[in-house]
Each structure stands twice: as structure tokens, then as C-alpha cells.
């Protein structure tokens, strides 16, 4: 990734075909491969966690149940009683992003949430869902939200486009937030890791000083573990907030 002279911090985000000839033919890159891996991991976690189905859960089952209840409470508390209907969607979204963020922290792996195409795809899914739910629940009253209450009619031609743009910016900000956090974290890893290699070129003194960047990188792993769960949480809670506005009468 990082040579002695040039630092190539963005090389880690490049997509390459995987799985040999078959992957080449299908244009199958690391990104979908790691998505499949994330999905399999989450499903395996839930399947093997819940297989005992004991009344008194073991550790594994307790972990699966805590995850379930955490998202369920979040959905129902934020959206209201209608939130139960959206719980499976939010659960999937949260754990897909979380698994993606965490798998990306493993050495030699790939972070699919570091691609704007992926995060924008997820955000647009949320956006389209909220628009459909809004139109279904509120009907044409949905469009009344674009005119702020109490503003004078003379300002409407200016205010309505601003409100519409503000509404349209939601999926963009949702996706940029996740994407930027992931890219920034992984770029920092790469920069500090390349410092180690550069310092190694300075003999014994460099070897001693190289401990610094290694220590920073270890701290960064801890930070990234937090960022990974926080960004998944923020994505899920914002989805809940948007859906709450959609189902509000």
C-alpha cells in the first residue's frame, strides 16, 4: 500500500476483480464479496445465537437478543407504535453497516462502506422509502410541509425551493457522513502505518521512533471501533427520525 517514498493512501479503496476468472467475467470486486460476507456473518450470528431458543439464554443467545431489543426499542421509541413495521428494515440497515465497518477494520480486508456509491445507495433506499410512506400516510398533505407555517405568501416562491432542496439534501448528507468517516479513518491508518515504514529506513533511531506511529495506530483502532458503531447508529437513528416524520399525521 505505502511505499518508502510515496504514500498511496487511497490505493486501499480501489476495486479489483476477485475470485479469479469467474470474478473477472462477472466484474465481481471486493465490495460485493465483503457485502456477502457481512450478510452471512450477521445471519450466522442470529441463526446460531437463537438456535438454542432457551428460556434462560446463554451468552450467545443473550447477545443476539440484546441486539434485537436495542434496535426494536430504538425503532418503536423514535417512530412510535408504527415503528414496529419498520423494525426489520432498520435492523438490517444497522447490522449491515456495522458489519461492513467492522469487517473493514480487519487487516487485508475491504471496507465497502467507504464507497460513496454504496452509502448513497443505502441512503437513497431510505429516502425513497420515506417518500413512499409519506405519500401513503399523508397523501397530498405531504406537499404542504414544503411551505413553512406562518410565512407570508409573497415569500413562497423563494421558501418552497429552499425547503425542497433541504429535503433533497437528506440522502446526500446521510451518505456523505458515513462515507467520509470511513474514508478518513482508513486514510489515517494508512498514513501512520506508512510513517512506520519510512522511519524504518533511518536505522536504529528510526526503529525506536517508529513505536510512536504504531502506538497511534493502535489508539486509532479503538477509535475506529467506536466510529464504526456510532456511524451505524447515526444512520439507523436518522432513518427512524425520517420515518417518524413520514408517519406523523
Amino acid at each position: 500500500m505505502a511505499g518508502g517514498s510515496g504514500i498511496d493512501v487511497l490505493g486501499q479503496f480501489e476495486l479489483r476483480p476477485v475470485l479469479g476468472g469467474l470474478g473477472e467475467a462477472l466484474r465481481f470486486s471486493q465490495s460485493p464479496l465483503y457485502m456477502l460476507l457481512a450478510v452471512c456473518l450477521v445471519l450466522a450470528f442470529l441463526y446460531f445465537g437463537m438456535r438454542p431458543a432457551a428460556v434462560v439464554p446463554g451468552r450467545f443467545q443473550a447477545a443476539a437478543e440484546v441486539c434485537y431489543e436495542f434496535i426494536r426499542n430504538m425503532a418503536v421509541d423514535t417512530i412510535g407504535p408504527e415503528g414496529a413495521a419498520f423494525f426489520p428494515f432498520i435492523f438490517t440497515l444497522f447490522f449491515f453497516i456495522l458489519a461492513g465497518n467492522y469487517i473493514g477494520l480487519l487487516p487485508f480486508s475491504f471496507t465497502f462502506t467507504s464507497h460513496i456509491a454504496v452509502t448513497l445507495g443505502l441512503a437513497l433506499m431510505v429516502f425513497v422509502l420515506t417518500v413512499i410512506v409519506s405519500l401513503k400516510v399523508q397523501g397530498f398533505r405531504f406537499f404542504a410541509h414544503f411551505m413553512p407555517a406562518g410565512a407570508s405568501m409573497a415569500l413562497a416562491p423563494l421558501l418552497i425551493p429552499i425547503e425542497i432542496l433541504s429535503f433533497l439534501s437528506r440522502p446526500v448528507s446521510l451518505s456523505i457522513r458515513l462515507f467520509a468517516n470511513m474514508v478518513a479513518g482508513h486514510v489515517m491508518f494508512d498514513i501512520f502505518a506508512s510513517f512506520v515504514i519510512m522511519l524504518a529506513g533511518f536505522g536504529v533511531v528510526g526503529d525506536v521512533f517508529a513505536i510512536g506511529p504504531i502506538a497511534i495506530n493502535m489508539a486509532l483502532v479503538a477509535l475506529e471501533l467506536l466510529v464504526g458503531v456510532l456511524q451505524a447508529y447515526v444512520f439507523a437513528i436518522l432513518t427512524c427520525i425520517y420515518l417518524r416524520e413520514a408517519v406523523a399525521h
Binding site: 436495542f70 426499542n73 430504538m74 421509541d77 489515517m188 497511534i216 489508539a219 486509532l220 479503538a222 477509535l223 467506536l226 466510529v227 458503531v229 456510532l230 447508529y233 437513528i237
Partner: peptide, 21 residues
Amino acid sequence: MGEESDESFAKRLEAAERRSG
């Protein structure tokens, strides 16, 4: 980087857990 953002994230996470848990 490091300590201070660690702290702020910890605070945020704690607040989030308090609310949602």
C-alpha cells in the same frame, strides 16, 4: 487526534446508549 476525540465519542456513545438502551 487520539484522546480528546476518544473522549467525545465515548460521551456520545454513552448518551446514545442511555437514551436507547
